[in-house]
Design a protein around this nucleic acid. Structure first.
Lengths: 132, 132
DNA sequence: GTTCGTGCAAATCATTTGCAGATAG
DNA sequence: CTATCTGCAAATGATTTGCACGAAC
């Protein structure tokens, strides 16, 4: 899988650097989503935060990284797997994935209003079992 | 309606000031959601941005203003009406409301994982008819 | 009068940009 | 060798905080 991503980079005329391999490694081994700060720490400060931002931006543009927004002022990033959503615990901020999605009917109703190219973001907030 | 909000302020031991009335007026007359910058402009710079932030924070705590996040780095605020979602045009950034919500089943499946106090944010992004 | 609200300046935090040297193809 | 990368420093933009004065109760 990581090989495919490296190929996508090459195809786009971008370089396959040690830095980008390290980043992809972390993303592939821990599904996340990760903040830039977490990635910085996971990589033990060996990459500049700026470099992390820039690499993630490239990965996102190539479509294999997705940015998630939980409204707390900090973006989170994960490898773009099958479409899914998240639940974040309001207490410990741990994030779990939710793979069901029943929003197709929703998008239909928006399409009827004349919109095209519809996408959505959906995040849940709750208190997890541990934190009750 | 605005009267109810003013009463909520009093009940919370907060003051009913000219400033807060002006803000509520704008919020009540234009459903929004509004950025702080838009509110600042609508009020012709007569309120400091800081004051707008602080008042909105109070209103949000009292529960009659809701913060929406479209992932563009700028919070938006609206009077908390019945539960609903939004579609934002990716081109003109105009926001329209979507009143259907079919997520109860979704929340059930999260409840089964042991979570409580579940809420969600759901925003749609699309290209509106005007912008095709 | 006491408490809360407001404006101004300054701080903070996430993120972006500019630039010169380092590295991949 | 040439284009892309990277780190560092500095800029940006949204939001928050500290403080002294002014307005509500």
């Amino acid at each position: 899988m990581e090989q495919d991503f490296l190929q996508l980079l090459r195809d786009a005329g971008l370089h396959v650097t040690k830095t980008r391999r390290m980043l992809l490694d972390v993303l592939a081994h821990d599904h996340g989503p990760h903040t830039v700060e977490q990635l910085f720490i996971d990589l033990q400060g060996s990459l500049d935060r700026v470099t992390i931002y820039r690499s993630l931006a490239s990965f996102e543009k190539l479509g294999f990284v997705r940015r998630c927004d939980f409204g707390d002022g900090t973006a989170r990033f994960e490898l773009a797997m099958t479409h899914h959503h998240h639940v974040m615990c309001r207490v410990c901020h741990r994030v779990e994935s939710v793979h069901e999605c029943v929003l197709d009917g929703f998008e239909d109703s928006i399409r009827k209003k004349g919109y095209t190219d519809i996408t959505h973001t959906l995040e849940f907030f709750a208190i997890c079992a541990r934190c009750q």
